[in-house]
Amino acid sequence: MKLGLNLSFAIKRWLGGERLAALVANELETRYVQFTWDLVDPDWPASTRDTLAREYATAFAAAGVTVESTFGGLASYTFNHILAPTPELRALGKAHLRNAIDMTAAMEVPAAGMPLGSFSADDAVNPARREEIYKMALEAYVDLARHAREQGLSMLLVEPVPLATEFPASAEEALRLMTDLDGQTDVPVRLCVDWGHAMFKPLFGEKATMEHWMEVVGNYIATFHIQQHDGLYDRHWNFTRDGLITPQILSDFWDRHELDEQTYFLEIIYPFEEPDAVVLEDMKAAMKMLRSV
């Protein structure tokens, strides 16, 4: 199976292209990464943002590491973006992804992605409002995909999330989004499916399996996030902890579905107060476990 790292583990710790690239290539022995916007914010002033982002991209390339995509992180996820309740907030959400596309292009990385966004508490329980805002989100993604093509990107990614107040949450909602956008955008919009989200039992019940997601939207999944979890919360634990997933389960799934073009990006989020040395040793141990199957 093809393993990579979402760089979420590094935020607030290992900053700067040369430092992080050396750690990824030499200490974690990884050749594929997904760059998190928590390292460089797309909404920073463009000239400074792109200079910093290019520094990371250049250093990773020199270290023999491929940045396959850039992706929204913790900071980005706190906002409602293009599912927000007001036109002003939705416009800011659209601008956020547009800025991320520009940053990704400056890095010469082919794909960028994030969760679609969050409805407000009131809109989430109002079917008419959900539908109205969803239709506007589709229009926004058509425009954003056009901009992505103009900037040289080849794909946009959307991550389903395990909250009923967001979209898409379920595999069925993800299928609706994919079919509504398929053939309508200048670059394809595809899914980044997180194992911990897809297997969220409180929301999905018996459908909280990766087999169900593959059955419903397997043809639209371009990449995966992997994490250890308990099926009760979106833990983003490492595989050094016990939970519902083992490296063998991941390997068997990969082989059973004959995956080859996707990447398993390990996406681990540590408490900020965790000592750096503990984080690094834990990441080393987890990558060794994942490579062993």
Rank of each mutant, 00 (worst) to 15 (best):
M1R: 01
K2P: 15
L5I: 15
L5A: 10
S8Q: 14
A10R: 08
K12P: 05
G17N: 00
L20K: 03
A22M: 14
L23I: 12
A25N: 09
E27G: 03
E29I: 09
T36G: 14
P45Q: 09
D50P: 01
L52T: 14
E55H: 11
E55F: 13
A59S: 15
F60H: 09
V65Q: 13
E68A: 09
E68L: 07
S69C: 15
F71Q: 11
G73C: 07
Y77C: 01
Y77R: 00
F79M: 04
A84K: 02
A84P: 05
T86C: 01
L89D: 10
L89C: 06
G93Y: 13
K94H: 13
H96C: 10
L97H: 05
N99K: 09
A100V: 01
D102M: 09
D102C: 07
T104F: 11
T104E: 00
A106Q: 00
P110A: 02
M114C: 01
P115M: 08
L116W: 01
F119D: 03
F119E: 04
S120Q: 02
A121K: 08
D122L: 06
D122Q: 08
D122N: 07
D123I: 01
D123N: 12
P127E: 04
A128R: 11
A128G: 01
R129P: 10
I133V: 03
K135F: 09
K135N: 08
L138P: 06
E139A: 06
A140S: 11
V142A: 00
L144P: 13
R146Q: 14
Q151L: 10
G152D: 03
L153P: 10
S154M: 04
S154W: 10
L156P: 05
L157Y: 15
P160L: 03
V161Q: 10
P168Q: 06
S170I: 01
E172M: 00
T185G: 03
T185L: 00
D186E: 12
C192H: 07
D194G: 05
W195E: 03
P202W: 10
G205S: 02
M210S: 09
E211C: 04
W213I: 05
M214F: 15
E215W: 07
E215D: 14
G218H: 12
N219K: 14
T223N: 02
H225M: 04
I226M: 04
Q227N: 11
Q227R: 06
D230T: 12
G231S: 03
L232Y: 14
Y233D: 08
D234H: 06
H236T: 09
F239K: 00
R241I: 02
D242P: 14
I245Y: 15
F253S: 06
H257V: 09
L259Q: 14
L259N: 08
Q262E: 12
Q262I: 09
T263A: 05
L266G: 11
E273D: 11
E273G: 04
A277L: 02
V279D: 05
V279P: 02
M283E: 08
A285R: 03
K288R: 02
M289G: 00
